[in-house]
Write a protein that binds this DNA or RNA. Structure first.
Lengths: 126, 126
DNA sequence: CTGAATCCTCAATGATACTG
DNA sequence: CAGTATCATTGAGGATTCAG
Protein backbone atom coordinates (compact mmCIF):
# COMPACT_ATOMS: atom_id res chain seq x y z
CA UNK A 1 0.00 0.00 0.00
CA UNK A 2 1.28 3.36 -0.93
CA UNK A 3 -2.00 5.06 -0.21
CA UNK A 4 -3.33 5.97 3.17
CA UNK A 5 -2.49 4.15 6.36
CA UNK A 6 -4.21 4.60 9.68
CA UNK A 7 -2.84 3.54 12.99
CA UNK A 8 -3.37 5.42 16.20
CA UNK A 9 -0.35 3.80 17.76
CA UNK A 10 2.52 5.80 19.24
CA UNK A 11 4.63 5.17 16.14
CA UNK A 12 2.18 7.25 14.16
CA UNK A 13 4.74 9.89 13.38
CA UNK A 14 7.19 7.38 12.00
CA UNK A 15 4.52 5.56 10.08
CA UNK A 16 3.25 8.64 8.32
CA UNK A 17 6.82 9.74 7.71
CA UNK A 18 7.65 6.38 6.17
CA UNK A 19 4.45 6.57 4.16
CA UNK A 20 5.16 9.98 2.78
CA UNK A 21 8.66 8.86 1.91
CA UNK A 22 7.23 5.80 0.19
CA UNK A 23 4.89 7.97 -1.81
CA UNK A 24 7.70 10.29 -2.75
CA UNK A 25 9.80 7.41 -4.01
CA UNK A 26 6.83 5.84 -5.75
CA UNK A 27 6.15 9.12 -7.52
CA UNK A 28 9.79 9.34 -8.59
CA UNK A 29 9.81 5.86 -10.02
CA UNK A 30 6.32 5.71 -11.48
CA UNK A 31 7.03 7.91 -14.46
CA UNK A 32 7.69 6.81 -17.99
CA UNK A 33 11.18 8.23 -18.41
CA UNK A 34 12.55 6.66 -15.25
CA UNK A 35 11.12 3.27 -16.18
CA UNK A 36 12.31 3.47 -19.77
CA UNK A 37 15.81 4.37 -18.60
CA UNK A 38 15.90 1.39 -16.26
CA UNK A 39 14.61 -0.83 -19.05
CA UNK A 40 17.21 0.57 -21.43
CA UNK A 41 20.16 0.08 -19.11
CA UNK A 42 19.09 -3.42 -18.18
CA UNK A 43 22.06 -5.54 -17.20
CA UNK A 44 24.44 -3.64 -19.43
CA UNK A 45 26.68 -0.64 -19.09
CA UNK A 46 25.38 2.26 -21.08
CA UNK A 47 26.78 5.63 -21.95
CA UNK A 48 24.81 8.83 -21.80
CA UNK A 49 24.67 9.14 -25.58
CA UNK A 50 23.63 5.52 -26.00
CA UNK A 51 20.69 6.08 -23.72
CA UNK A 52 19.75 9.27 -25.50
CA UNK A 53 19.83 7.47 -28.85
CA UNK A 54 18.01 4.39 -27.66
CA UNK A 55 15.18 6.00 -25.75
CA UNK A 56 13.00 7.41 -28.47
CA UNK A 57 11.80 10.92 -27.83
CA UNK A 58 13.71 11.69 -24.65
CA UNK A 59 15.41 15.06 -24.54
CA UNK A 60 18.92 15.78 -23.33
CA UNK A 61 17.44 17.54 -20.35
CA UNK A 62 14.96 14.85 -19.33
CA UNK A 63 17.66 12.21 -19.59
CA UNK A 64 20.12 14.03 -17.31
CA UNK A 65 17.36 15.01 -14.94
CA UNK A 66 16.05 11.49 -14.56
CA UNK A 67 19.52 9.98 -14.39
CA UNK A 68 20.33 12.34 -11.50
CA UNK A 69 17.15 11.38 -9.76
CA UNK A 70 17.82 7.67 -10.22
CA UNK A 71 21.38 8.13 -9.02
CA UNK A 72 20.19 10.05 -5.98
CA UNK A 73 17.78 7.26 -5.10
CA UNK A 74 20.53 4.73 -5.59
CA UNK A 75 19.07 2.88 -8.58
CA UNK A 76 21.85 3.67 -11.00
CA UNK A 77 25.57 4.07 -10.52
CA UNK A 78 27.44 6.71 -12.45
CA UNK A 79 31.12 6.26 -13.27
CA UNK A 80 33.04 9.04 -14.95
CA UNK A 81 36.08 8.18 -17.04
CA UNK A 82 38.57 11.04 -16.92
CA UNK A 83 39.28 10.90 -20.62
CA UNK A 84 38.90 13.57 -23.22
CA UNK A 85 36.27 13.79 -24.41
CA UNK A 86 34.73 12.60 -21.15
CA UNK A 87 32.88 9.32 -21.00
CA UNK A 88 30.25 8.45 -18.44
CA UNK A 89 28.90 4.96 -17.87
CA UNK A 90 25.66 4.09 -16.17
CA UNK A 91 24.79 0.75 -14.63
CA UNK A 92 21.99 -0.47 -12.43
CA UNK A 93 22.67 -1.02 -8.76
CA UNK A 94 21.15 -3.90 -6.84
CA UNK A 95 17.96 -1.94 -6.03
CA UNK A 96 17.82 -0.87 -9.66
CA UNK A 97 18.17 -4.43 -10.89
CA UNK A 98 15.51 -5.53 -8.45
CA UNK A 99 13.09 -3.22 -10.19
CA UNK A 100 13.73 -4.75 -13.60
CA UNK A 101 11.17 -7.56 -13.32
CA UNK A 102 8.54 -4.96 -12.51
CA UNK A 103 9.41 -2.86 -15.53
CA UNK A 104 9.58 -5.95 -17.72
CA UNK A 105 6.19 -6.92 -16.40
CA UNK A 106 4.77 -3.60 -17.43
CA UNK A 107 6.28 -3.86 -20.90
CA UNK A 108 4.96 -7.39 -21.30
CA UNK A 109 1.55 -6.30 -20.15
CA UNK A 110 1.55 -3.48 -22.69
CA UNK A 111 2.28 -5.79 -25.59
CA UNK A 112 0.00 -8.51 -24.32
CA UNK A 113 -3.04 -6.22 -24.25
CA UNK A 114 -2.17 -3.95 -27.14
CA UNK A 115 -5.02 -5.29 -29.24
CA UNK A 116 -7.61 -5.20 -26.48
CA UNK A 117 -6.68 -1.65 -25.62
CA UNK A 118 -6.85 -0.50 -29.20
CA UNK A 119 -10.28 -2.08 -29.49
CA UNK A 120 -11.44 -0.52 -26.26
CA UNK A 121 -10.29 2.86 -27.43
CA UNK A 122 -12.19 2.44 -30.65
CA UNK A 123 -15.36 1.65 -28.72
CA UNK A 124 -14.86 4.50 -26.28
CA UNK A 125 -14.06 7.11 -28.91
CA UNK A 126 -16.73 6.05 -31.36
CA UNK B 1 10.89 -3.41 -25.40
CA UNK B 2 9.02 -0.18 -25.55
CA UNK B 3 11.98 1.73 -26.89
CA UNK B 4 13.21 1.64 -30.47
CA UNK B 5 12.75 -1.25 -32.82
CA UNK B 6 14.43 -1.64 -36.17
CA UNK B 7 13.35 -3.97 -38.91
CA UNK B 8 13.63 -3.20 -42.59
CA UNK B 9 10.99 -5.75 -43.44
CA UNK B 10 7.86 -4.87 -45.38
CA UNK B 11 5.82 -4.78 -42.17
CA UNK B 12 7.82 -1.76 -41.11
CA UNK B 13 4.83 0.51 -41.14
CA UNK B 14 2.83 -1.80 -38.91
CA UNK B 15 5.74 -2.39 -36.60
CA UNK B 16 6.40 1.27 -35.99
CA UNK B 17 2.70 1.88 -35.65
CA UNK B 18 2.42 -0.86 -33.05
CA UNK B 19 5.49 0.53 -31.33
CA UNK B 20 4.16 4.05 -31.13
CA UNK B 21 0.88 2.67 -29.83
CA UNK B 22 2.77 0.66 -27.23
CA UNK B 23 4.64 3.74 -26.15
CA UNK B 24 1.45 5.71 -25.95
CA UNK B 25 -0.16 3.11 -23.73
CA UNK B 26 2.98 2.74 -21.65
CA UNK B 27 3.03 6.49 -21.10
CA UNK B 28 -0.61 6.43 -20.07
CA UNK B 29 -0.07 3.67 -17.53
CA UNK B 30 3.35 4.63 -16.23
CA UNK B 31 2.17 7.54 -14.14
CA UNK B 32 1.61 7.58 -10.44
CA UNK B 33 -2.09 8.42 -10.39
CA UNK B 34 -3.06 5.68 -12.80
CA UNK B 35 -1.09 3.09 -10.85
CA UNK B 36 -2.39 4.28 -7.50
CA UNK B 37 -5.96 4.11 -8.77
CA UNK B 38 -5.47 0.56 -9.98
CA UNK B 39 -3.89 -0.35 -6.66
CA UNK B 40 -6.75 1.28 -4.79
CA UNK B 41 -9.50 -0.45 -6.73
CA UNK B 42 -7.82 -3.82 -6.47
CA UNK B 43 -10.33 -6.63 -6.60
CA UNK B 44 -13.05 -4.54 -5.05
CA UNK B 45 -15.79 -2.27 -6.29
CA UNK B 46 -15.07 1.30 -5.41
CA UNK B 47 -17.07 4.45 -5.65
CA UNK B 48 -15.69 7.71 -6.94
CA UNK B 49 -15.71 9.29 -3.49
CA UNK B 50 -14.05 6.27 -1.92
CA UNK B 51 -11.21 6.53 -4.36
CA UNK B 52 -10.88 10.24 -3.75
CA UNK B 53 -10.73 9.68 -0.01
CA UNK B 54 -8.36 6.76 -0.17
CA UNK B 55 -5.81 8.13 -2.61
CA UNK B 56 -4.00 10.72 -0.58
CA UNK B 57 -3.41 13.96 -2.39
CA UNK B 58 -5.34 13.29 -5.58
CA UNK B 59 -7.64 16.07 -6.73
CA UNK B 60 -11.16 15.69 -7.98
CA UNK B 61 -9.97 16.59 -11.44
CA UNK B 62 -7.01 14.23 -11.60
CA UNK B 63 -9.20 11.38 -10.40
CA UNK B 64 -11.88 11.87 -13.05
CA UNK B 65 -9.27 12.49 -15.71
CA UNK B 66 -7.34 9.33 -14.95
CA UNK B 67 -10.49 7.26 -14.49
CA UNK B 68 -11.63 8.33 -17.97
CA UNK B 69 -8.26 7.42 -19.39
CA UNK B 70 -8.29 4.03 -17.71
CA UNK B 71 -11.83 3.43 -18.89
CA UNK B 72 -10.93 4.39 -22.43
CA UNK B 73 -8.02 1.95 -22.39
CA UNK B 74 -10.32 -0.72 -20.99
CA UNK B 75 -8.63 -1.17 -17.61
CA UNK B 76 -11.58 -0.12 -15.52
CA UNK B 77 -15.29 -0.54 -15.97
CA UNK B 78 -17.63 2.21 -14.98
CA UNK B 79 -21.20 1.46 -13.93
CA UNK B 80 -23.62 4.26 -13.20
CA UNK B 81 -26.52 3.62 -10.84
CA UNK B 82 -29.48 5.81 -11.81
CA UNK B 83 -30.26 6.74 -8.23
CA UNK B 84 -30.43 10.12 -6.61
CA UNK B 85 -27.92 11.15 -5.64
CA UNK B 86 -26.11 9.27 -8.40
CA UNK B 87 -23.69 6.51 -7.56
CA UNK B 88 -20.88 5.33 -9.77
CA UNK B 89 -18.92 2.15 -9.22
CA UNK B 90 -15.55 1.33 -10.65
CA UNK B 91 -14.05 -2.13 -11.02
CA UNK B 92 -11.02 -3.51 -12.79
CA UNK B 93 -11.51 -5.36 -16.05
CA UNK B 94 -9.45 -8.40 -16.95
CA UNK B 95 -6.62 -6.30 -18.44
CA UNK B 96 -6.76 -4.08 -15.40
CA UNK B 97 -6.53 -7.03 -13.03
CA UNK B 98 -3.66 -8.41 -15.06
CA UNK B 99 -1.73 -5.27 -14.26
CA UNK B 100 -2.18 -5.65 -10.52
CA UNK B 101 0.83 -7.90 -9.92
CA UNK B 102 2.99 -5.31 -11.63
CA UNK B 103 1.68 -2.50 -9.46
CA UNK B 104 1.97 -4.67 -6.38
CA UNK B 105 5.53 -5.43 -7.37
CA UNK B 106 6.31 -1.75 -7.56
CA UNK B 107 4.77 -1.10 -4.15
CA UNK B 108 6.66 -4.02 -2.66
CA UNK B 109 9.86 -2.79 -4.19
CA UNK B 110 9.30 0.66 -2.73
CA UNK B 111 8.89 -0.64 0.80
CA UNK B 112 11.64 -3.19 0.45
CA UNK B 113 14.23 -0.57 -0.49
CA UNK B 114 12.90 2.34 1.52
CA UNK B 115 15.87 2.32 3.86
CA UNK B 116 18.48 1.92 1.14
CA UNK B 117 16.98 4.76 -0.82
CA UNK B 118 16.83 7.04 2.17
CA UNK B 119 20.48 6.28 2.87
CA UNK B 120 21.46 6.85 -0.74
CA UNK B 121 19.69 10.17 -0.72
CA UNK B 122 21.53 11.18 2.39
CA UNK B 123 24.86 10.38 0.75
CA UNK B 124 23.94 12.12 -2.48
CA UNK B 125 22.61 15.26 -0.86
CA UNK B 126 25.33 15.56 1.73
C1' DC C 1 30.87 13.90 -24.80
C1' DT C 2 28.49 15.12 -20.77
C1' DG C 3 26.24 18.31 -18.04
C1' DA C 4 24.65 22.66 -16.02
C1' DA C 5 22.13 26.88 -16.61
C1' DT C 6 19.04 29.96 -18.91
C1' DC C 7 15.05 31.31 -21.11
C1' DC C 8 10.65 30.42 -22.97
C1' DT C 9 6.41 28.03 -23.99
C1' DC C 10 2.68 25.13 -23.28
C1' DA C 11 0.42 21.64 -20.91
C1' DA C 12 -0.66 19.72 -16.49
C1' DT C 13 -2.85 20.70 -12.32
C1' DG C 14 -5.68 23.02 -8.70
C1' DA C 15 -9.51 25.93 -7.40
C1' DT C 16 -13.95 27.23 -8.27
C1' DA C 17 -18.41 27.24 -9.92
C1' DC C 18 -22.19 25.07 -12.25
C1' DT C 19 -25.21 20.86 -13.91
C1' DG C 20 -27.77 16.45 -13.79
C1' DC D 1 -22.61 12.38 -5.52
C1' DA D 2 -20.40 12.52 -9.78
C1' DG D 3 -18.98 15.05 -13.60
C1' DT D 4 -17.94 19.02 -16.72
C1' DA D 5 -16.22 23.51 -17.72
C1' DT D 6 -13.59 27.57 -16.89
C1' DC D 7 -9.94 30.15 -15.31
C1' DA D 8 -5.42 30.96 -13.13
C1' DT D 9 -1.09 29.28 -11.84
C1' DT D 10 2.62 26.47 -11.68
C1' DG D 11 5.79 23.48 -13.25
C1' DA D 12 7.37 20.31 -16.81
C1' DG D 13 9.84 20.10 -20.58
C1' DG D 14 12.27 21.84 -25.09
C1' DA D 15 15.76 24.70 -27.27
C1' DT D 16 19.84 26.90 -26.74
C1' DT D 17 24.09 28.22 -24.89
C1' DC D 18 28.19 27.76 -22.20
C1' DA D 19 31.64 25.00 -19.51
C1' DG D 20 34.64 21.04 -18.07
Amino acid sequence: MVTKQFSGSPEDADLTRADSLAREIFSDIANKWALLIIESIGDRTRRFSELRDEIEGISHKMLTQNLRMLERNGLVERTVHPTVPPRVDYTLTEPGRALRPVVDGMCDWTHRYLGDIEASRGRFDG
